[in-house]
Amino acid sequence: MRSDEEHTEKMKKIKSARDRIMEERQGEKGLIVVHTGPGKGKSSSAFGMVIRAIAHEMPCAVVQFIKGGRETGERKLLTTHFSHLCQFHTMGEGFTWETQDRARDIAAAQAGWDKAKELIRDPAIRLVLLDEINIALRNDYLDIAEVCAFLQGEKPEMTHVILTGRNAKPELIEIADLVTEMEVVKHPWRAGIKAQPGIEF
C-alpha cells in the first residue's frame, strides 16, 4: 500500500500534467455531438446536456423526429418550467412500426428537418437537440449528405448540435466533434419488465 507521502507526490505529478494539458486547450467552438449505439441513455444524456445549457441560461431547442404525442418526463419538465429558454418540437408520429406508412414517416422527418434547420440557423439559440434523427437517417427518410453539408456549412460557429439514435451513419460520425456509443450490458426489458416512467420516458 502506498504511503501518504508517495500518494501526495503522485497527485502532484498528475496535477502538473493536467495543468499543462489545460493550458494547451484554449479553443472554443460549437460542437457536433453524436450519441449512438444499442444501449440505453442516448436521449437521456442529450437531455442532460440541454438541462446543463439551460442552467447557464443558454437558449436551447429540441426537435424530436420519431417519438410521437406520448407524454415524456423531459418534455413535461422543459415545457412546464423552462419554455422561456427551451423550445420543444415533437415532429414525429411515433415509432415507424406504429405508423406503418413510409410516405407519412418521410413527410414527418422532412418537416422535422426543416424545423431543425430554422432553429440551428437562429443565432440566439446556442444548443439544438435533434432527438432520434439517426433513425430517420438510417431509414433514408432524410438525405445524409444534405444533413452533413448543412451542419458543416450553415451551422453558426458557436452553436452546439446533438444528434441521437442508434446506427449513426459513418458520414455523420466523420464530421462530428464528439461521438459516444452506448453499449448494452444488461437491460430489464430482456427480463420482461416494461418501460417505466422516470427511467425510459
Rank of each mutant, 00 (worst) to 15 (best):
D101N: 15
M22E: 14
F65V: 12
F201G: 02
D131P: 05
E132P: 08
R25M: 11
H81G: 10
S83N: 09
I54H: 00
G37T: 03
Q152H: 00
G198D: 07
C60E: 04
A108D: 13
I66G: 02
D131C: 08
N167G: 13
V62H: 04
V34E: 03
T80K: 14
R126C: 10
M58I: 11
G198S: 07
M158T: 08
N134M: 10
A108P: 07
M1R: 07
Q100C: 11
T164C: 13
H84K: 12
R138W: 10
C86S: 05
K169Q: 15
A149F: 00
H89C: 09
G37E: 04
R138G: 02
D4A: 12
K186P: 06
H187F: 06
L85K: 09
V63Y: 06
A145T: 14
M158V: 01
G30K: 08
C86M: 04
E146S: 13
A191P: 00
S3C: 03
R75H: 12
E57N: 15
T90F: 02
A61R: 05
H7L: 12
A145H: 13
L163R: 04
D105P: 08
R104L: 15
E5W: 00
G30D: 09
K169T: 13
H35E: 11
F65P: 03
V185P: 01
M11E: 13
R20T: 12
E181H: 06
A111Q: 15
D4R: 11
I32M: 13
E98H: 11
L178V: 15
R104P: 04
T180R: 02
E183N: 15
L151I: 02
I125A: 05
R126N: 12
R138Y: 14
F82G: 01
G153N: 04
A145M: 07
M91D: 05
H160I: 07
E74A: 06
D140G: 07
L129S: 08
A136N: 04
R190G: 06
E93N: 15
D122I: 05
M11P: 00
I51C: 11
F88G: 01
F150C: 10
H81E: 10
K40G: 00
